[in-house]
């Protein structure tokens, strides 16, 4: 059985079975990445477009490699300005891509809901690679894959997400995914960066690491953006680092075999201490590798491929 949906717009709408299918399908994909010749013909003749309205290195590269390893023709469209500023509407861009014959469009956009507009106007599959503060579903999938691989399962684990929850699409997608998979999730950050109604998503909010970290099996550290400080959401980067920086000492409050994760790019010495990022607990590099495998699995499934057993070409 494959995925019976055209698009992946968010983790919120995925079932547990769909998440499991994607993670299971990523296993053989990771074997492909480890091969000498990283190329299978699975997506030959398919056109894959990376439509990025926000700067991104790792997500765009990850999708591009995932497509190329599977023999798709991949094209990148990067624009620093939004479609609205550029003068062409997203709807018109969607129609243009449609008539060019795109099979899968991967979109990153600063405005929440932009992938939904594409989805409405495209018969091609749309993958959300991050929209505003809304969702970043493939990041959550690769995080879940990494946790499952290291811990054997997700159910029953205690996961702490630390940082700017308010502006984080990574946090939202992970909250949906991890709670669906049976993890106990808490979010930790300054009260000005915790969104209203967050507890209604089934997570426990904390405003100190000392309260939230004890007993954690996984710590997901989020990037803190300098512009948030400029908007007055916290006084200084220095105070943020002192109160919410994940240091070796604080990692000591979690379980001894805790995993440290970060979606990147990191501000070393701000949200995460360098020795933590490079410690034995850190699986930050594995996350990147797994990202390619998970995206290969997703491309394969959305292109109509079956389950994990059929996935290796």
């Amino acid at each position: 059985m494959g995925l019976s949906r055209k698009d992946l717009l968010g983790i919120q709408e995925l079932s547990v079975e769909e998440i499991q299918l994607i993670l299971d399908t990523a296993e053989p994909m990771r074997d492909i990445i480890r091969r000498q010749i990283k190329k299978v013909p699975t997506l030959r003749g398919k056109a894959l477009i990376n439509l990025f309205y926000e700067p991104s290195t790792r997500t765009r590269t990850s999708f591009e490699l995932a497509g190329k390893y599977m023999s798709a023709d991949t094209i990148n469209i990067s624009t620093s300005t939004s479609s609205a500023v550029k003068g062409e509407t997203l709807k018109d861009t969607a129609k243009t891509l449609e008539v060019m014959g795109a099979d899968i469009v991967i979109i990153r956009h600063g405005a929440a809901g932009a992938p939904h507009i594409l989805s409405k106007h495209l018969s091609a599959s749309v993958i959300n690679a991050g929209d505003g503060f809304h969702e970043h579903p493939t990041q959550a999938l690769l995080d879940m894959y990494t946790i499952r691989e290291r811990k054997g399962q997700i159910s029953g684990l205690k996961v702490a997400i630390v940082g700017d929850i308010l502006h984080s699409r990574v946090a939202r997608s992970n909250i949906w995914g991890l709670t669906k998979m049976g993890a106990e999730v808490c979010v930790i950050g300054p009260s000005t960066l915790l969104p209203p109604g967050i507890a209604e998503l089934g997570v426990t909010p904390f405003t100190s690491l000392e309260e939230g970290l004890p007993g954690a099996d996984v710590i997901i550290v989020l990037r803190v953006q300098l512009e948030r400080q400029q908007k007055g959401l916290f006084p200084t980067i220095r105070e943020y680092a002192r109160l919410f920086g994940v240091t070796a000492e604080r990692v000591g409050m979690a379980k001894p075999d805790v995993l440290i994760m970060h979606p990147g790019p990191m501000n070393r010495g701000v949200e995460i201490a360098p020795e933590v990022a490079d410690s034995v607990h850190s699986v930050i590099n594995e996350q990147v590798t797994n990202g390619v495998a998970v995206r290969m699995a997703l491309l394969y499934l959305l292109a109509g491929g079956g389950g994990p057993h059929e996935a290796i070409g």
Binding site: G132, R169, L201
Partner: peptide, 13 residues
């Protein structure tokens, strides 16, 4: 409106 739905939809409340 600021609240649960703005948090879920990722829109400023």
């Amino acid at each position: 409106h600021e609240g649960y739905f703005s948090t879920v939809f990722g829109l400023k409340g």
